[in-house]
Design a protein around this nucleic acid. Structure first.
Lengths: 120, 120
DNA sequence: TGAACAATGCAATTGCGTTGCATTGTTTTC
DNA sequence: GAAAACAATGCAACGCAATTGCATTGTTCA
C-alpha cells in the first residue's frame, strides 16, 4: 500500500489531497492512506501543504529533507482554473521585516492565479 | 449582537476565531456570530485570515477596504507561543517570480514564530 | 512455533463551516 | 395604527475532512 501511494506521488507533479489518492488507488482505505502519508511526513518524504482550500495536500520533498527537518521553504501556487497546487521550488521565500521583538521560525506563502495550461 | 461583535473586534488587536468570540460574548449563538462576521466581511469591515491552523480568523480591515474590494494585502503572523494571529500591515507582500505562463491574482503569506511577549 | 510488533481496515468521533427553517424584531406601506 | 414585507436571531441538522479506538491481519524476531 505504501508503495502504491509512493508511486502515485512520483507520477504526479502537483500536490495531491487524500481524496485524490483514494480515488486513484482503489480499492484502498482512506484511513490507511492517511496514516501512510502521516508516516511519510514524519520520515521527511513528503511535506504537507496548506493552500487555503481547507483540505490538506501532500507533495514529495526534495533530497534535503529528513526526519529531523523539513526544507519545504518554497512557494506554493494554487491554480484557480484546474484547482491544482504546485510547488515552486525555484521561487525562494522573501525576507520579511518583522516588528521589534518578533522571532521568525517558518513561513507559508501561497500564490493564487492561473497556471500555464489554464491561463485565459 | 452586531455591536457586541464589533466592539469585541475593536478591543482585540489580534485576529480572532469564531470560537473566541463565542466564548467572549455569552450568551450568544454561534450561527448568529458566524453570519455577523460574514456580513461584516461582505461589507468590507473585516477580512478573513487563513493562518494555517485550520480555523478561520477575522480581523478588522483598514479604512481603504470597502464592499467592492479588500486591501488585505499584508503579511499575517502566527505566534507559536500564544497562538495568536496578528496582522502586519507594515510588511507589504513581496514580488514573486512565477514560472513562464503563470498568472498572478492573489497571495497569502503567513509567518510563524514567537511574538514579542512569547519570545523565549 | 509462538510471542512481539507493525500495518491495515472498519466504525465512530470530533471540529468547524454551512444551510434550512421557524421565530422574533423592525421597517415600510396603506 | 394595523398589516404586510423584510431583516435578524436562534435552534437543529448537515457535510466534509481530519482524526482516533479497536479488532484483525500480516510480518519479524527469539
Amino acid at each position: 500500500m505504501r508503495l502504491l501511494v509512493l508511486n502515485f506521488l512520483l507520477k504526479r507533479k502537483a500536490a495531491i489531497s487524500l481524496n485524490d489518492i483514494e480515488k486513484a488507488i482503489q480499492p484502498a482505505d482512506r484511513i490507511t492512506i492517511y496514516r501512510t502519508l502521516k508516516t511519510f511526513e514524519e520520515k521527511g518524504l513528503v511535506h504537507l501543504i496548506d493552500d487555503g482550500t481547507g483540505t490538506h495536500k501532500y507533495a514529495l520533498c526534495d533530497d534535503t529533507c529528513g526526519p529531523e527537518e523539513h526544507n519545504d521553504l518554497h512557494v506554493h501556487f494554487y491554480c484557480n482554473g484546474c484547482h491544482e497546487t504546485y510547488c515552486l521550488p525555484n521561487s525562494k521565500l522573501p525576507q520579511i521585516d518583522l516588528p521589534e521583538g518578533f522571532g521568525y521560525s517558518e513561513m507559508n506563502l501561497v500564490v493564487k492565479g492561473y497556471c500555464d495550461k489554464c491561463k485565459p
